[in-house]
Design a protein around this nucleic acid. Structure first.
Length: 358
RNA sequence: UGGGGUGUCGCCAAGCGGUAAGGCACGGGAUUUUGAUUCCCGCAUUCGUAGGUUCGAAUCCUGCCACCCCAG
């Protein structure tokens, strides 16, 4: 009896190839497209329509049925509201991390299972191991450059039951090749970037549509006012562009955002000297562990933002939070982002960076 | 309105008679399922202004203007 796998299809190459591979492997495959953000562009067109059209083309070619679901309401309530609240609080949120826990491996997975699926699959670059004793381990993708476990660190282990990640062992170039060789309509599509489901767009203009901007002073550590910012939420720690600050007499170097003072609406910057950006530890909350019950104190590797290599750290659990000490000081660790822990090829979980210790 | 100094891209800043370095900012692109970082490309026919000397000046001379400092 063939097992049924419902594949979350975005209209991109990755999920298209994931569907193709499952079909090859003998699954009874169903494509499920998900709409989470309803917005039309200036010309009244909706890029989501084009994406769904691609899903239709790919599914037609693979000769598999396809459906579409709308979780826009859930997305707004569970992800976007958090996104705005975090910015309002002066932090730098990572909506895509929550999108996975709250939507893709939440309502979406439930919906897929309700369709009679034995398995739910996505085009994520990561691996999974369902152990004989009933655990579900999240593994890094073979293609280290594309690994997306960072975005899955908040997914509950129970949400990984019945999940398949067909791209676990396949390098991105190979994925593209498979798409081309099989004539998938999405073969030449550019990798999507930007907030998942919302897409690439002018970040400032986008936020302006939701949160009022409050201009204020840009100040150095010495207390010297050197410029004006357009609203604290538009800046993140370690940022250099967009400050509109030029050179100074007798010094050279670039300006970096070092701190935000929400109370007084002040943006603190440093010129040339990046040492204020380096920290020694951070406090993490909202801990989630996957396939791993940690000891109260242990060593492992960790990432503090998506595009970063793993760093050696010591973790000390304390109630609901953890103190993560860095073997080497880290640049621009930012509140609101996630600290994600790894042990070998396993992603063992993560949590929100609540406070940075300098 | 005595003396001295300075005026080169939005901000710093080279240049010192031979036909406008560089950095920052900014713009564009690459990378990227957050926001950043990083990387690449672009960015003064013109040197406060008006004349003069010269084959040729941002560079020399003169007037004017502006700003700064010291004296009054």
């Amino acid at each position: 009896m063939k097992k049924t796998a419902v594949v979350g299809m975005s209209g991109g190459v990755d999920s298209s190839v994931a569907a193709y591979l499952l079909k090859q492997q003998g699954y009874n495959v169903i494509g499920l497209y998900m709409l989470n953000w309803e917005e039309t562009d200036s010309r009244g067109a909706c890029s989501a329509d084009a994406d769904f059209a691609d899903v239709q083309r790919v599914c037609a070619l693979l000769d598999i049925p396809y459906y579409s679901v709308n979780f826009a309401k859930q997305y707004t309530e569970r992800v976007f509201s958090y996104f705005l609240a975090e910015y309002k609080a002066g932090r730098t949120p990572n909506p895509d991390v929550l999108c996975n826990r709250e939507i893709k491996f939440g309502p979406f997975r439930d919906y897929a299972l309700s369709m009679g699926a034995d398995f739910v699959a996505t085009g994520h670059y990561c691996g999974i191991e369902h152990t004989s004793d009933g655990r579900h381990l999240l593994l890094k993708a073979a293609d280290a450059g594309k690994d997306q476990t960072y975005f899955l660190n908040q997914v509950r282990e129970s949400q990984l039951e019945n999940v398949l990640f067909p791209l676990a062992e396949i390098p991105k170039p190979e994925v593209r090749k498979i798409a081309v060789q099989n004539g998938l309509a999405t073969a030449g599509k550019k990798d999507s970037t930007g907030i998942c489901f919302i897409g690439e767009r002018n970040f400032r203009k986008f936020l302006q549509g939701y949160l009022p901007a409050q201009p204020g002073k840009i100040v150095t550590a010495d207390g010297e006012t050197v410029g004006e910012h357009i609203g604290l939420m538009y800046y993140t720690i370690g940022q250099r562009r967009g400050l509109d600050l030029g050179g100074r007499r007798g010094e050279d170097g670039r300006w970096f955002v070092v701190r935000k003072d929400l109370q007084n609406n002040i943006l603190y910057v440093s010129h040339g000297d990046e040492s204020p950006l380096y920290s020694e530890a951070c406090i993490v909350s909202g801990l989630n562990w996957i396939g791993h019950m940690p000891a109260t104190s242990f060593k492992c590797t960790a990432k503090f933002r998506y595009r970063q290599s793993e760093q050696s750290v010591s973790v000390k659990l304390k109630g609901d939070t953890a103190r993560v000490e860095f073997d080497e000081s880290q640049r621009a660790v930012t509140e609101g982002q996630y600290a994600v822990f790894y042990s070998g090829r396993q992603c063992i979980g993560g949590g929100v960076i609540e406070k940075v210790v300098y």
